[in-house]
Structures are given as C-alpha cells and as structure tokens.
C-alpha cells in the first residue's frame, strides 16, 4: 500500500529523517514507537505531504508520487489523518465537520453526505451529537469525530499521530476501541502511539524509531518480549 525508500527530511540544517525505508501492506496495522523528537510525526506527515521530503521515494499503491507534478489534494484524499489535538473545525457542528470535505472536495450531494455522515457518527458512537458544536464535546468524543471526519473521505489508509496523547486517561479507552474496530474492518493504519497495550494487541507490526532512523521492526510479540537492539531494549525499559 505504501512504500518508502531512502526518505530524507531536513528542517534547515537539522537532519530529521535519515534514510527511512518503510512499507505498509494492505490492511496492515503498523505502530510507530520511539522517544519524543525521534521523527515519528515528521515521518507520518511526509506520507500525506504535509511535510515535503528532501529526497527519497514515496509510493502509494505502487505509484511513485512526485509532489511537484502530482495532484497532492488527490493523494491526500486517499490518506486520512488524525491529529493529536483533533483539529476539529470549531465553527462547524459535528456533522458539518464530517460532511465538509466530501461536499467541497468530492462534490457529492449534501443529502448523500449527510446520510453517510450520520452513519459514520453512529459507527464511532456519536450519533446523538450530530448537531452539537465541538466545544461541547469531551476530548475523547472530539477525537472520535476527527476519526469519522477522516473516514468520510473513504481513505485507503489512515494515519494517526498520537491520537490519545492529549486525552484524560479515562477517555483513552473509547478512542482506542474505535481504532480497534477500524483495524478489525481491515483498514490500513499507521499509528504513532505511546499506548504499548494497544500496539501489542492490535498492531501487525511495530516499528521502533530513534534519532531519525528505523532501528528495529517486527511483530509486537518479538519487539516487546525480546527486542534485538540495545536501543529498543533501553527505550522499552524506560517506558514500561
């Protein structure tokens, strides 16, 4: 589904991604773990071109994407993104948040968009909040709306950047449950997370990043129970 080769990214002189090779298969759930500042967010943001790579190749469904010539808006429609701080549109109701892009970008009819929007809200357990403004929601509800909003574009793959890090502990579970349901339906997902329980249970593969490089990758069981690299061992023992 996604193939990344020799990806390099600089912020000025700062070399943030140092030759990343990374693949995600269809319906695979990959969890990205690593210390803060190791480049996880940047990596994720390169995948939907919110950040532009400096060198390397990014392929989506077998096709290499050139930010200069390809239609990035079209690419981004296929790659949903969920942010740590939700980034809901505060001036729109929950339903309006969900139907905005399908109507504006995909040009589907308002009635169709609303119908699909309501279904998605039901799915994330917020059917009764359609006409409420985001300011009235808890963090967990906001994040579930954000997930529904991304799903409304019917993406091929979903990227999550620490979706539960800004939540009160008691609200983490509902968001993780929504993500689990999504994984079970076969959605391709890349999840940056510090929720090791989630990674262990849901991920097909865990990728450990350190200092702009992928240090180790493997099945959750292998990574968590007997990591090969010393750095991975150190990281895991520091957080568990």
């Amino acid at each position: 589904m996604i193939e990344v080769k020799e990806l390099n990214k600089y912020f000025g002189d700062l070399h943030v991604l140092k030759g990343i090779d990374f693949n995600v298969d269809e319906s695979e759930v990959v969890c990205l773990i690593g210390a803060s500042g190791s480049g996880k967010s940047t990596m994720l943001r390169c995948l939907n071109f919110l950040e532009m790579k400096n060198s390397g190749e990014i392929k989506l469904k077998g096709e290499s994407i050139d930010p200069n010539s390809d239609d990035l808006n079209g690419v981004r429609q296929q790659v949903g993104m969920v942010f740590q701080h939700f980034n809901l549109f505060p001036h729109k109701t929950v339903l309006q948040n969900v139907i905005e892009a399908p109507i504006q970008v995909k040009k589907i009819s308002k009635s169709q968009a609303k119908k699909e929007g309501h279904e998605l809200l039901e799915k994330v357990g917020l059917g009764d909040k359609a006409d409420v403004y985001p300011s009235k929601l808890s963090g967990g509800q906001k994040q579930r709306v954000a997930i529904a909003r991304a799903l409304a574009m019917k993406p091929e793959i979903m990227l999550f950047d620490e979706p539960t890090s800004a939540l009160d502990p008691e609200l983490v579970g509902e968001v993780l449950q929504t993500m689990k349901d999504l994984a079970q339906e076969g959605m391709t997902m890349v999840v940056v997370t510090h929720e090791m329980g989630f990674a262990r249970e849901v991920a097909d593969r865990v990728v450990y990043m350190h200092d702009g490089k992928i240090v180790e990758t493997g099945a959750p069981k292998d990574i968590f129970e007997n990591p090969k690299e010393v750095r991975t061992q150190e990281f895991l023992s520091s957080i568990l």
């Binding site: 919110l50 981004r76 429609q77 949903g80 549109f89």
Partner: peptide, 11 residues
Amino acid sequence: GQTEAGRSLGM
C-alpha cells in the same frame, strides 16, 4: 492545525 486538517482532507 486548522489548515493542516483541511489540507489533510484533500481540500
């Protein structure tokens, strides 16, 4: 974040 949310949806 608002711009990024919009752009990430393909707008």
